[in-house]
Structures are given as structure tokens and as C-alpha cells.
Amino acid sequence: MPRYLIERDIEGAGLMTPAELKSVSQTSCSVLNELGPQVQWEHSYVTDDKVYCVYRAPNEALVREHAQRGGFPANRISVVSSVIDPLTAE
């Protein structure tokens, strides 16, 4: 199944409290439960004004539907073509 990197512009994302992050996570999981197991959230990175999320889904349309239902921006969605790390150099 394809992996997607979703870039979300969220002003002040890095200032969100643990309670706010928990609430956003709960909303995301609730929508994922509605969509079924074909859309999977792997993890997210929170920076100052952006959140980068990694998802697995059969297509981009389901990633966009998750964002719409959850009320999250999905400013850019990119298909991950490869993953590299230090082991790639060996």
C-alpha cells in the first residue's frame, strides 16, 4: 500500500499543549475508525508552524477525505517513493 507524507500548515503547532495534541490525535483516530483499516496513520512530526504526517492508504483521495472529515488542513500530499537511512549507505 502506498505511503504518503502530508504537510499541514498549522500556525503555532509547536506550541500545542499535550492535551491539545491528545485531542487532535483522538479526532484523527476517530475518523480513521470511520474510514476503516485501509487508511493507517503511522506517525507525525510537529514543528513550529507545520505538522508532517505519514499515512498508508490505497490512494490520495482517502487521505484527503480523512483531512476533510477531521477538519485538518492537507496543504501538500506527496507519495513516498523511497525511505533511506544510515543503513542505506552500507
Rank of each mutant, 00 (worst) to 15 (best):
L21S: 01
I6R: 06
P18R: 08
I6H: 03
N33K: 14
A74Q: 00
A61L: 05
C53D: 13
I84G: 10
R56V: 09
H66G: 08
L35W: 02
V83I: 14
Q38D: 14
M1C: 04
F72S: 07
I77P: 01
C29K: 15
P37A: 09
E90Q: 13
V39G: 02
L62S: 07
T88G: 03
V63A: 05
Y45T: 11
E7Q: 05
A74G: 03
L5T: 10
A89H: 01
S81G: 06
Y45G: 04
A19R: 12
A74S: 07
A67M: 06
E65N: 03
H66T: 10
C53A: 15
V46K: 01
A57P: 12
K50P: 09
A89I: 06
V24A: 14
Y4V: 01
V79C: 04
R76Y: 14
L32A: 08
V46M: 06
D85M: 00
V51N: 06
E90C: 07
R3S: 09
K50E: 13
S44Y: 02
P37D: 09
V31G: 01
V31Q: 00
T17Y: 06
L21Y: 02
V24Y: 03
I84V: 13
L87Q: 15
R69H: 04
R76M: 13
S78Y: 05
P2K: 00
E11K: 08
M1L: 11
S23D: 10
E90W: 09
I10T: 00
Y45C: 07
Y52L: 15
R76G: 12
Y45D: 09
E7I: 09
V24S: 10
T88R: 02
Y45M: 06
E11R: 10
V63G: 05
Q40N: 13
G71K: 00
E65C: 02
H43V: 07
R76F: 12
S81E: 11
D48R: 15
V80P: 04
A74I: 04
R3G: 04
E11Y: 09
G70M: 13
A67N: 08
R64L: 11
Y55P: 02
R8T: 10
P58A: 00
E20P: 00
M1S: 07
E7K: 05
V80G: 03
E20M: 04
L35A: 03
I77S: 03
M16A: 07
S30L: 12
D49R: 01
R8C: 08
S78A: 14
P73I: 00
E90T: 11
R56N: 15
I84K: 01
A13K: 07
L87T: 15
S28K: 08
